[in-house]
Amino acid sequence: MATKNQKNKLLYLGFIAVAIAIAFFVFKITNKTDLSLFNRNDSQSSDKSTNQIYTSKTLRISVGVSKEFQIEDKLIDVIFKKGNEEIILSRIGTNFTTIEEYLDNLENKNKTKINDKETLNYNSYKIISGYINRRDGNNEKVYFIYPDQWVVYTISTTYPNLYDYLDKIARSFRYTP
């Protein structure tokens, strides 16, 4: 049976413990704000799953990508690496008003053909996916995303092992102008 004095001490200690806990929590909130001050072009945030959200301020996009990938932001491209295999996300400007016109012009200019074209609509973005038999022998799976006027994003990989990851990245694509 605790004495009254012991109860008071207990309440006193408990009060201090709560105060410390609140102070620490406030410190961490502040710490979070400070972290954002780092001069970093990109950012990753963890969610509870195995995915991470990657945001590129330069390219003005965010995508969800498995934590298995290492991410290399090269300003004009982002490369998602898993071992020796990789997925490339890049951005290009265009004066064409539709994704179809852009691709027609691209096929003509680059003397290439996009096979098995499929028109998609993820997150209200006009998207065309397909496959390109590269002249170096690789079969590239590619998504062309036209989220807004005058800009086309391309997400592609030549590694069949990464096709599923590529699909997930394309589905998670968000344009953040």
Partner: peptide
């Protein structure tokens, strides 16, 4: 050359099929 006519290499070394070779 045909071997490189469908790709370009950017200043950061990335090789893509972007517009235009």
């Amino acid at each position: 050359p045909d071997t490189v006519s469908d790709t370009l290499v950017k200043y950061n070394g990335t090789k893509t099929g972007d517009f235009y070779s």
